[in-house]
Structure formats: structure tokens, C-alpha cells
Computed example of a mutant assay.
Amino acid sequence: MLLLHGGHEYGTSAPGPWNLPAVRMLPFERAARRATAEHAVLIGRVRYRCRGWNGERADAARDAEAALSELAEIAGDLPTVLVGHSMGARAALRAGGAPGVRGVVGLAPWCPPEDPVRHLDGRRVVLLHGDRDRVTDPQASVDFCARARTAGAHASFVEVRGSGHAMLRRAAAWHGLTARAVTGLLGLTPLSSRFSGEGCLPAPP
């Protein structure tokens, strides 16, 4: 499992030691560790070279792909789930077609309508989005889910009602849904029907 934190639309400076978007992912890491404690699961974090996506450079996506290559060198051919928030979710979705990627879990993802989906054919994609998000658009996640399904992905959308982009309200729901998605995508537990890729309409947890 690889975690990808959020970032900015533009920014070429390196993330500092006190990186709030990275800190925001720590509870998700802890939830995943608890959920996989009885299994041999390797959990890592993608480190970005700079803070932003930066247009066509797509720096975060390039870093995600580099992390997957490094993981393969270290641990061999392992089934992998990418879990990303906001810009990190966009990077995870962009890298989701790489060899070994079993699925992608996008948290409040940034899903521009021009982003590709064909590479997700055959992959499982779970998008979680708060209905009070004012930073990234929940409807854009629904639209991306529908496009990915048309391209052959097993994509699903789950609405977290009453929560926004920072995932602070209803935090336990975010952490629990993510942990269950990860264990299901890795085949450690039965995959919940809400993550089965049967639809992209809002379905509250």
C-alpha cells in the first residue's frame, strides 16, 4: 500500500519537514496498519520532489510512478493499492494503470474532466468524497467514476455526508471506509458491495 498526500495546483518548492497534507494522512496509515496487522502488508508513503502538480509536468504523478518502480525493486512483484488525498488522489489515479496496481482509493480526489481513464481498464477504483467539500468537486468524482467505468474500470463512488475536504468531520467514517477498501482490494477481506464497482451515484456510508 502506498499513501499519497495532497498538494497544490502549482508549486515547485520542496515540501518542508512540517507538511500538513502529509500529516493528514497519518490517521489513514494507522487505520490501515490496524486493519492489516495479521497480514504481511508493506505500507509506504510517496515523497514528492515539489509541492505542486504543475500543469503538464504532472510532478506528483511522476513521483507516484517512480515510487512504484522503487517498490518493485525493493519488494518484487506485489499487488499494490494506492491511497491518495486530493492532488495525491489525482496522482494515484494517473499511476493506477502501472503493473502490479490492484486498485486505487481516492479521498476527496481532484478529478479534472480532461484526465485520462483508459489506463484504468480492469482496475478497481474507489472514490470517497464529502458532500461539503469546497476545494475539490464531488460531482467531478462522480463524473470521473462514470468515465472510468465506461473505460472498463470497476469504479465506485461513496459520499461521506456532512464532511469536507480536510476529512475532519466524520473522520472515523473516512478512516474505516478507507481501511475496508484497502483490505478488500488486497483480497484480505471480502470486498464490500459499496466498493464493488456497481455504480457511481452517491451512496452514503
Score class of each variant (00 low, 15 high):
residue 69 S to I: 02
residue 27 P to N: 04
residue 109 P to D: 14
residue 128 L to Y: 09
residue 157 F to W: 04
residue 102 R to G: 07
residue 99 P to V: 13
residue 53 W to A: 03
residue 165 H to Y: 11
residue 129 H to D: 09
residue 23 V to K: 01
residue 186 L to R: 00
residue 160 V to C: 02
residue 178 T to F: 03
residue 89 A to V: 13
residue 151 A to C: 08
residue 11 G to R: 07
residue 168 L to F: 00
residue 81 V to Q: 06
residue 177 L to P: 08
residue 44 G to V: 01
residue 63 D to I: 03
residue 164 G to T: 03
residue 84 G to I: 10
residue 101 V to G: 14
residue 54 N to C: 07
residue 30 R to T: 01
residue 94 R to I: 06
residue 9 E to R: 12
residue 98 A to E: 15
residue 83 V to P: 08
residue 76 G to W: 07
residue 8 H to Y: 13
residue 154 H to I: 00
residue 53 W to Y: 02
residue 202 P to G: 04
residue 91 A to D: 14
residue 127 L to M: 08
residue 186 L to F: 03
residue 88 G to V: 10
residue 14 A to F: 03
residue 26 L to E: 12
residue 15 P to S: 04
residue 6 G to N: 08
residue 47 R to M: 03
residue 189 T to M: 04
residue 204 P to A: 05
residue 120 L to R: 09
residue 161 R to P: 00
residue 137 D to L: 14
residue 50 C to K: 03
residue 154 H to K: 09
residue 53 W to E: 00
residue 168 L to R: 01
residue 152 G to L: 03
residue 100 G to N: 05
residue 74 I to C: 10
residue 89 A to C: 12
residue 27 P to Y: 01
residue 124 R to Q: 14
residue 86 S to C: 13
residue 73 E to C: 05
residue 3 L to P: 07
residue 169 R to F: 14
residue 136 T to W: 08
residue 34 R to A: 10
residue 142 V to L: 02
residue 84 G to L: 12
residue 181 A to G: 13
residue 153 A to Y: 01
residue 100 G to F: 05
residue 15 P to R: 02
residue 201 L to T: 10
residue 180 R to H: 15
residue 37 A to Y: 01
residue 11 G to I: 08
residue 196 S to G: 15
residue 69 S to M: 05
residue 185 L to P: 06
residue 125 V to N: 07
residue 17 P to D: 10
residue 76 G to L: 09
residue 135 V to H: 04
residue 201 L to D: 09
residue 105 V to N: 12
residue 157 F to Q: 04
residue 97 G to V: 13
residue 77 D to P: 06
residue 151 A to F: 05
residue 166 A to E: 07
residue 47 R to A: 08
residue 22 A to G: 01
residue 11 G to E: 06
residue 80 T to D: 06
residue 60 A to L: 10
residue 164 G to Y: 00
residue 3 L to E: 14
residue 195 F to S: 10
residue 72 A to V: 07
residue 8 H to C: 03
residue 18 W to N: 15
residue 84 G to Y: 11
residue 18 W to F: 11
residue 13 S to Q: 13
residue 79 P to L: 06
residue 190 P to C: 07
residue 178 T to E: 06
residue 45 R to C: 03
residue 87 M to N: 10
residue 85 H to M: 14
residue 53 W to D: 04
residue 73 E to T: 11
residue 106 G to Q: 13
residue 68 L to S: 02
residue 165 H to R: 11
residue 197 G to V: 11
residue 46 V to I: 12
residue 17 P to I: 02
residue 189 T to C: 05
residue 46 V to T: 03
residue 6 G to M: 07
residue 1 M to I: 13
residue 190 P to G: 07
residue 98 A to K: 13
residue 51 R to K: 01
residue 50 C to I: 06
residue 91 A to T: 12
residue 85 H to N: 14
residue 153 A to C: 05
residue 32 A to L: 12
residue 142 V to Q: 11
residue 71 L to M: 12
residue 55 G to D: 10
residue 170 R to C: 04
residue 111 C to P: 10
residue 201 L to H: 06
residue 30 R to A: 05
residue 87 M to H: 11
residue 143 D to F: 02
residue 143 D to L: 15
residue 49 R to F: 05
residue 103 G to Y: 12
residue 132 R to P: 04
residue 35 A to S: 04
residue 35 A to Y: 01
residue 160 V to L: 05
residue 146 A to S: 14
residue 177 L to W: 07
residue 85 H to V: 14
residue 21 P to G: 03
residue 135 V to K: 08
residue 18 W to G: 10
residue 10 Y to C: 02
residue 180 R to L: 13
residue 87 M to Q: 14
residue 29 E to R: 00
